[in-house]
């Protein structure tokens, strides 16, 4: 906001100073230009004939996808069960490993700020920056295809997520409650169990269930790289262009995800 004096001596109100105006316009121009440039790059790598054909292709795809092949569901229960197990076991493993990492990373609980805290933060960053699908890709090569690779991929990706949110919660606790427990002459472990744990328990439960919900989604596609679950059937069906089966899988995923989201919301509501 700026008030300047006009030539006639009457103060004039403007939203920004002229310099601010210029910067704002330059910012917008830059952003639009960058986007256009990037779009140009993409469009050069696109066969537009296919794209113009897309509505027809889409209509064709839809016509081939419907009706879903309901009978195929019978073959999907086992993979669906596997998918849920991948998500659940992966989350459980991540919780087991992520909780200590969180306590090492929070500045008010870490035993060593110089060494362990940066190490824990590195673990968190490394785990978070690699998508579970990429973890799965690597693990399938190392361990061979199967659920184990999927579980570990989910766990590796989730450690960072759980540890990050949990250590932020730990850093936000009320320090005087901790002080009070310390003042009774309690040992380190007792301070953790009596002063800190009760305060972060609701956040911990919420974070775990939230991540489990996300992991159900992630687990549905791990099969594309061979890491078990319903994604394996999806990959197989796409490979043979069995679109009605694909639709059936999509529907099942939709229902599963909606149910897991409902469960997660209920649990989070209950603990808060």
């Amino acid at each position: 906001m700026a008030v300047t004096c006009g030539p006639d001596g009457i103060p004039q109100w403007r939203r920004r100073t002229p310099r601010g105006d210029l910067l704002a316009w330059a910012g917008w121009l830059g952003a639009v230009a960058l986007t256009m440039l990037c779009f140009h790059y993409i469009s050069e790598r696109t066969i537009w004939a296919f794209v113009w054909d897309a509505p027809a292709q889409g209509a064709d795809l839809v016509s081939r996808m419907f009706p879903p092949r309901w009978s195929y569901a019978a073959q999907l229960w086992r993979p669906l069960w596997d998918t849920i197990n991948i998500a659940t076991l992966g989350t459980a493993l991540a919780v087991l490993l992520g909780v200590p990492v969180a306590f090492l990373a929070a500045h008010n609980t870490t035993p060593s700020r110089a060494l362990l805290r940066p190490a824990a933060l590195f673990v968190i960053v490394a785990s978070r920056s690699i998508n579970s699908l990429i973890w799965a890709l690597v693990l399938v090569i190392v361990l061979g295809p199967g659920m184990l690779a999927g579980i570990l991929a989910i766990a590796l990706r989730s450690i960072g997520f759980i540890a990050k949110l949990l250590y932020e919660a730990i850093e936000e606790i009320d320090p005087t409650q901790v002080e009070a427990v310390e003042a009774t002459g309690a040992g380190r472990a007792q301070v953790l169990a009596w002063g800190i744990a009760p305060q972060v328990l609701p956040a911990f439960a919420g974070i775990s269930v939230f991540r489990w919900d996300i992991n159900i989604r992630e687990a549905t596609v791990l099969g594309l790289v061979g890491a078990g679950g319903i994604g394996m059937q999806l990959q197989a069906s796409i490979n043979v262009l069995a679109w009605p089966q694909v639709t059936m899988i999509f529907l099942l995923i939709l229902v599963t995800v909606l149910v897991s989201e409902w469960v997660s919301a209920r649990v989070r509501h209950a603990v808060i």
């Binding site: 009320d174 005087t176 409650q177 009070a180 427990v181 009596w194 002063g195 009760p198 305060q199």
Partner: peptide, 10 residues
């Protein structure tokens, strides 16, 4: 303590 500093969830 001033603000009691009870562990609230216990």
């Amino acid at each position: 303590f001033q603000e009691y500093a009870l562990v609230e969830r216990l």
